[in-house]
Design a protein around this nucleic acid. Structure first.
Length: 750
DNA sequence: TATACGCCAA
């Protein structure tokens, strides 16, 4: 170490004539020394020292004339993810050999810039540099990550014909390529033909079975593995999780620990993912503790997994604490022109976390700062932000985002286009959703599904059914989500028979109905007034332990005014879902309508005693680029006096044309304040009135609500649309209601 | 200097 420092201080010692093998070794130490001190002193010293060394090398010409020295320096830059510098160095080098290219290429691959890596490979071919095995396996990895089957096949062919010779690593790379590209015939053939198989090969095969959902086979193979390394455990645990076997995955994780395997970075990521998919924040915290004990908290992948875990468990505070560190690092690295793919992932995670937790405002804030800080955008970021627009239901914002995506010239892939379709549908413009859908070349199942669900959302059941038929005729296999869309459409349009047929059709497509499908069916029977069939369906399919199912039935009871059954159902709910406020409020209200005040109060007390969280109902309206949010009985708006006095006058005028408050509406799981606040102060009424007084006569008004709209408000809005001759659009949690001339597009069926 | 297993989107 001391020697290297001397060399740094006296660059003349590095004269070209002295470039013997010994001297090259000295360089090696110089690099190691610099790297060591970078760990101790932080990035800035590292930067300057590399630069000093670089300058010295240029000065005495050794960089230009000695490949080994140049390659080594390049490798250091790549390893420290300093791509700007690496690129500069690469361009400066007089001589480049296959190693130079390979270092650059595999560096890109390591940070996930696979297309840059492949560009590099093409340039290399143009300059007639013959690739070696290292180059080729990196290239194959890029192909498999980008699902470039064609290019991968041609590389495979080239390897065979060029006589470069296959070894286990290369064959593994090819095997993996075929697995990723789902070319299973090739996988089988190649695996059988392989002479040497190491534990990587076996691991690829375990992964292959998991990839196609053959869980049994993969477990068998895993148990028979000649040697179980950490990666084997990682593969099986992750694959089980992705196939929905969280329980077995967790068991295996424990087994892995007991059998003495030490976690690697990948294991931490997978374990955190498992915690969030189990919604087990306690497990997540424990793993976070281990991460700190192992001292790997600064690993980018692990940090992202931690952020993601906290986001998915609804702990945005905790996630944002971790995220603050990322954005600080990002600024520092941007100044060093360093690649930051991993940092983009953190931003995307935060945005999607905010969206998931309904904090749209923070999602937009994060996005805006991402634009200001010039963080690169990924398709993940854009998809998340479009979905934030969709959930917020603000069409203007959604359009702006669409324009932004076009402006930055981002390719609209399947994910993005389906989220755009979803966004336009959820923001009320089904026409625009259709436009995007029709622009799509070969819509895949997800895009079809988005369009079908969009029609369902707007109550266009027949259109949705037509789309479904069209899609299957085209030979596209519907998935579980597609069926949710079409079943919802049927139930909203009262197409009982069609719905039953589609439910049966699921089996024909080899799909097992899940909880959502059963819920759709209960809804379908209930809405059509077949309450007893609905109840039978619940018991026949053993769904009686699911609260959401009973809640759906309850809505139907309300719709068809079967109060006796409603009461029986509402008594079940608090037992099934002790932590949800809805059922308690519901039950207490039901008891109140029967004047059983003492019992009603008892239910409320029980709720308080159990510390049940309330889910506040709120409505919002967007006017002139501002979003105004209201909760029931809200007094916080600056124009509240105006709103309340107009509301009072409006109710008076509505009563003259036959509106009366619906006292029975309390049999519903609407706003938490029910029974506490007068019906007339529900948030949707406040938002509507604010819309009326802030816009000229005749302007259509659109409001959003995060729960279902209640019967009284529905009546109120119907009458208002007639009295004021205004089109009023309400998007509640389930669907769109378009009020016109005293009627609603849902046909009072929601 | 290479290959398997990990984070973010509908």
């Amino acid at each position: 170490m001391r020697w290297t420092c001397e060399y740094l201080k006296h660059p003349h010692l590095l004269s070209p004539s002295n470039l013997t093998r010994n001297l090259i070794n000295t360089y090696k130490f110089a690099f190691l020394h610099i790297q060591h001190s970078s760990l101790v002193n932080g990035d800035s010293t590292y930067e300057s020292k590399i630069k000093t060394l670089h300058a010295n090398l240029i000065k005495n010409g050794s960089l230009l004339h000695n490949l080994q020295v140049g390659n080594r320096l390049l490798n250091r830059c790549v390893e420290s993810l300093n791509f700007g510098y690496a690129q500069k160095l690469f361009d400066e080098m007089l001589y480049r050999d296959v190693r130079t290219w390979t270092i650059q290429l595999s560096g890109f691959a390591r940070v996930g810039s696979f297309s840059s890596a492949l560009d590099c490979f093409r340039r290399m071919q143009n300059e007639c540099v013959w690739p070696n095995k290292f180059t080729l396996s990196s290239v194959l990895k890029c192909c498999s990550s980008l699902y470039e089957l064609r290019m991968g096949k041609s590389v495979h062919g080239w390897i065979v014909t060029s006589g470069i010779g296959l070894d286990v690593t290369l064959e593994n790379s090819i095997l993996d390529l075929y697995v990723k590209c789902e070319a299973f015939d090739y996988v089988k053939k190649l695996f059988e033909l392989m002479e040497d198989r190491d534990n990587v090969s076996w691991n690829i095969m375990v992964g292959a079975y998991l990839h196609i959902g053959e869980v049994e086979k993969s477990l068998c193979l895993f148990e028979r593995l000649p040697e179980k390394v950490v990666a084997s455990w990682n593969t099986i645990i992750d694959g089980l999780m992705k196939n929905g076997f969280q329980g077995i995955a967790l068991e295996l994780l424990y087994r892995m620990i007991i059998s003495g395997h030490v976690f690697n970075k990948v294991t931490f990521s997978i374990a955190l993912n498992l915690a969030s998919s189990l919604s087990n924040v306690e497990l997540g915290r424990r793993i976070h503790g281990c991460v700190l004990t192992f001292g790997v908290q600064d690993d980018r992948f692990i940090r992202n997994s931690l952020i993601d875990m906290y986001c998915k468990c609804g702990e945005m505070e905790k996630a944002s604490v971790l995220f603050r560190k990322v954005s600080r690092d990002f600024l520092r690295m941007r100044n060093a022109k360093t690649s930051c793919e991993a940092e983009i992932v953190s931003w995307s995670s935060m945005i999607s976390g905010y969206v998931r937790n309904g904090e749209y405002d923070d999602a937009f804030k994060t996005f805006r700062s991402m634009v200001c800080e010039q963080v690169g955008m990924s398709k993940f970021t854009l998809t998340s932000i479009v979905s934030a627009c969709a959930n917020a239901g603000i069409l203007v914002l959604g359009r702006q985002m669409h324009a932004y995506i076009m402006k930055v010239g981002h390719k609209i892939d399947a994910h993005l286009s389906s989220s755009l379709i979803d966004m336009y549908a959820k923001c009320g413009s089904l026409d625009d959703a259709w436009k995007i859908f029709k622009q799509t070349d070969n819509p895949n199942v997800v895009q079809w599904t988005s369009m079908i669900s969009g029609c369902a959302l707007h109550g266009q059941g027949r259109e949705a059914v037509k789309l479904f038929e069209h899609m299957t005729k085209k030979g596209i296999r519907p998935n579980e989500v597609t069926f949710i869309g079409v079943l919802t459409a049927c139930s909203h349009a009262g197409l009982l028979e069609d719905g039953c047929d589609y439910f049966k059709l699921m089996k024909g497509h080899d799909l097992k109905p899940g909880f959502e499908h059963f819920a759709c069916m209960v809804d379908l029977y209930g809405r059509a007034g077949h309450l007893n069939e609905a109840k039978e369906f619940i018991y026949n399919n053993s769904l009686s332990h699911l609260s959401a199912i009973w809640r759906s039935l309850l809505s139907s009871c309300r719709l068809h005014k079967d109060f006796a059954m409603a009461k029986r159902v509402s008594e079940k709910l608090p037992q099934l879902e002790p932590c949800d406020a809805g059922p308690y409020i519901l039950l207490s209200n039901m008891l109140a309508t029967e004047h059983k005040w003492e019992e009603s109060a008892k239910v409320r007390r029980l709720m308080k005693h159990r510390g049940v969280k309330k889910h506040p109902g709120q409505s919002w309206i967007q006017l002139k680029n501002l979003v105004h949010t209201f909760v029931a009985g809200d007094r916080s708006h600056p124009q509240d006096t105006e709103i309340y006095s107009y509301l009072e006058r409006l109710i008076g005028r509505l009563k003259e044309i036959g509106y009366s408050s619906d006292v029975q509406m309390v049999i519903q799981d609407v706003e938490e304040e029910q029974g506490e606040v007068f019906l007339s102060l529900h948030s949707e009424k406040l938002a509507l009135v604010y819309g009326i007084i802030s816009t000229p006569c005749g302007t259509p008004i659109q409001i959003m609500k995060n729960l279902r709209v209640c019967t009284d408000c529905h009546n109120f809005i119907k009458c208002t649309s007639q009295l004021l001759d205004r089109e009023i659009i309400v998007r509640d949690i389930r669907r769109f209601h378009q009020f016109k001339n005293g009627r609603c597009s849902c046909g009072d069926y929601w």
